[in-house]
């Protein structure tokens, strides 16, 4: 078991964004987290990465209770995420963005940097070449020197994935990676996530694109108004009456779109 979420609750003032949500993710699987807008999916990511502290409940990563750990230490432990509303470092080049992602897997400090010690130069070299490999991996090979701000939307989404992969995560959290992508881009994304899985990285995926979720995920949990209403394989989820009800109840979503 890579990740166990036990009875996680999160309240914002009077609003209960998550209540008593539990699920666990197995090593190597792609686990989908779906639900209508405002269901609490992104909030779950924020709890797992410690951006928010849970009102109650436990989050266990590889046997360790990670509640209350600082976000950067969670990344160091091996959980990294992308953001629903892209949060790249806009003025940095694609390469620099990915190099930042390698921060927690490198260690040069002020003095080795200023005096350019041998180990610092080797480390920089290693970071840079790994960054370029990752750009290649997500299909941004020719864009190392491009300022991330001027990349196309779909490219920015893939750059965020490369930046997250740079931290060598064991568990990768993707928050709506297909949002704003056209069909070709979405099918490229499908293959990319498959290749990430092949590298032994466990993936937790939030996504509104149902065909993509159903093709990609091994198992899925469904949230609605902060509660888990279903969990199971894509086939089970598609035929679950509660899930159909939840999706038909909201106007914007169409499960079979």
């Amino acid at each position: 078991m890579v990740l166990q979420v036990k009875k996680a609750c999160k309240n914002f003032g009077g609003l209960s964004a998550l209540s008593d949500v539990s699920f666990s993710i197995n090593q190597g699987e792609i686990f989908g987290l779906i639900g209508p807008n405002g269901a609490g999916k992104t909030t779950m990511f924020n709890l797992i990465t410690s951006m928010f502290t849970p009102t109650s409940g436990e989050i266990i990563f590889n046997e360790d209770n990670i509640n209350g750990l600082k976000p950067h230490l969670i990344t160091k432990k091996g959980i990294c995420r992308t953001f629903q509303n892209i949060r790249l470092f806009p003025q940095m080049t694609a390469e620099e963005n990915v190099m930042v992602g390698e921060h927690c897997r490198s260690k040069s400090g002020v003095f080795s940097s200023v005096f350019r010690t041998k180990s610092q130069r080797q480390e920089e070299e290693r970071i840079r070449s790994k960054a370029n490999e990752l750009l290649e991996f997500v299909g941004l090979g020719g864009f190392a020197e491009t300022v991330s701000d001027s990349l196309a939307y779909g490219q920015q989404r893939r750059l965020e994935i490369a930046r997250a992969l740079a931290s060598s995560p064991k568990l990768l959290l993707l928050d709506e990676p297909a949002a704003g992508m056209n069909e070709t881009e979405t099918s490229e994304l499908f293959r990319l996530i498959k290749r990430i899985q092949e590298q032994g990285i466990t993936v937790l995926l939030i996504e509104h694109d149902m065909p993509l979720v159903m093709k990609l995920c091994d198992r899925i949990a469904v949230l609605n108004f902060g509660k888990k209403i279903a969990e199971g394989t894509p086939a089970e989820i598609q035929n679950n009456p509660d899930v159909i009800e939840a999706y038909l109840g909201s106007e914007e979503e169409d499960m079979y779109a």
Binding site: K70, H72, T75, C80, F89, M92, G101
Partner: peptide
């Protein structure tokens, strides 16, 4: 630079 550009994202990147 990462902290200057986006503190939360920087923190999330470790």
């Amino acid at each position: 630079a990462a902290i200057k550009l986006d503190e939360k994202a920087a923190e999330s990147m470790g």
